[in-house]
Design a binder for these strands. Structure first.
Lengths: 249, 249
DNA sequence: CGGAAGCTTGAGTAAAATCAAAGAAGGTGG
DNA sequence: CCACCTTCTTTGATTTTACTCAAGCTTCCG
């Protein structure tokens, strides 16, 4: 079938999709609906007003934008980029399928980071006001939302931990284990996967130079701990990689 | 006056204190009550069931404990310590007056870190169920809670940013600016203060060795950017320090 | 006074950043 | 389908930086 046509159909299907499809959403259990039964999920119906496609490298929202919406990642992934006063960019966070982004803006009413799609992605647009209304109507939705926010915080915390470790190979190892864990939590293949980040992105995220990242990858390959070909990664023995991480410093 | 007596009086005053003192609390504007008027704050009355003193170095809660309570720091500060499988300790987060700790446990129902008081501290004990009930009764309390959680997340994010930067002096500089900003947000002196952390704690937090931290401090002193004597820090010109941070790499 | 932490300083070593260049991969248009 | 361009990635040689091990110092406390 023609590629263009497929894309057109894809757009069509999204355009025609009713916003209130939480009940049929494939990532329901990762997202706000987790733990709710079908009847309760239908209570989320009008929380998501639309779905927004964002192409790879394109911006979901800019640093400085007012905080009015949250975004749940229906598919794809994103990075949060912080621009410091001197113009340097730094990756503050990564978010995958099922994660909610944009919550940080609640602190000040202004988004502190720019969010960029790492691949072609689809975001569920959640007006914060809608969500608050639903929470006040159903306490369970509130606890689910808290659980979701806490999960995202914990992801970030874990990322913090391996970022602070000294050794370059250990950082990359920690990053790969972290990413693998994220995939496992999403019931995706976690021993063989494709990283949505470039070497530069990884370097920015873990706090190394890209050459050092590249060398660390080849070194981990030489140790037969991973098989890396570009962004494609295979972990033959996750347990072995994990114990190597613990053993190294 | 006798020292023991003073402590006894202190304990007395806390023991006798009604739990519902949010309305009179000195850190109200940092905490759940921020943005609420006095009448609304009184709605928080029974959210805090007690206040708990924790001495320096003592544990507020252990990693693995069930998630049942949140804790707001009425005074003092704390560190979140993660113990990895191999027994190594790492500082995952710092929390100061007005911050809420314990929320990460909401993700899995189990606390992922151990929280230790950095100085003699007082924590407001908030049963999560109480909070949920209040949130469902008053939507404003929900938004305030979100704001509070987002603020804590943002603090951690900012810490992540300087931790990932290459240079040791820059990391320490970033840490000091971060800490100073935290104090400023709490309307405390932010150009002259006492760090509640030892050099070892700082090292664990920013991902350096303690000798390197020490050398970075003396180097920043030599550059007249700070005056450091042990834990006591003075920043003669915050703007200068900030621009040095931006200029360095 | 003596002991124990915590902090600083020094010299040598290991590691990552830097500068530089070449090799793969992916997309575009002929 | 191929040649060409751009972007991403790897590798090498050198310099800079942080780690390591070691010793001395300060501060606090019994």
């Amino acid at each position: 079938m023609d590629h263009e046509l497929l894309i057109a159909l894809g757009k069509q299907s999204f355009a025609s999709e009713r916003p209130n499809h939480c009940a049929q959403c494939g990532i329901r259990e990762l997202c706000l609906g987790s733990g709710l039964d079908l009847h309760q999920v239908s209570g989320l119906a009008d929380v998501v007003v639309e779905r927004r496609r964002v192409e790879q490298g394109k911006v979901l929202y800019e640093q400085g934008a007012p905080f009015t919406h949250l975004f749940a990642i229906a598919s794809g992934s994103s990075k949060a980029v912080a621009r410091s006063d001197d113009g340097r960019l730094q990756i503050a966070a990564l978010a995958l399928r099922g994660d909610v982004v944009g919550f940080l803006g609640a602190a000040s009413g202004t988004q502190p980071v720019t969010v960029v799609a790492l691949e072609n992605s689809v975001f569920c647009v959640i007006p914060y006001r809608h969500l608050l209304r639903r929470i006040s109507q159903n306490q369970l939705i509130g606890t689910q939302f808290h659980r979701l926010v806490a999960r995202v915080m914990q992801q970030r915390q874990q990322a913090f931990l391996f970022t602070a470790s000294a050794n370059a190979e250990r950082r990359i190892c920690g990053f790969l284990l972290w990413f693998s864990d994220q995939l496992a939590a999403r019931k995706q293949h976690f021993t063989e996967f494709s990283l949505p980040l470039s070497r530069t992105d990884i370097a920015d995220f873990v706090g190394l130079r890209l050459e050092t990242v590249s060398r660390a990858f080849t070194r981990l390959c030489d140790l037969n701990l991973i098989e890396a070909k570009g962004r494609h990664i295979r972990i033959p023995d996750v347990q072995a990689l994990r114990s190597w991480f613990s053993a190294s410093r």
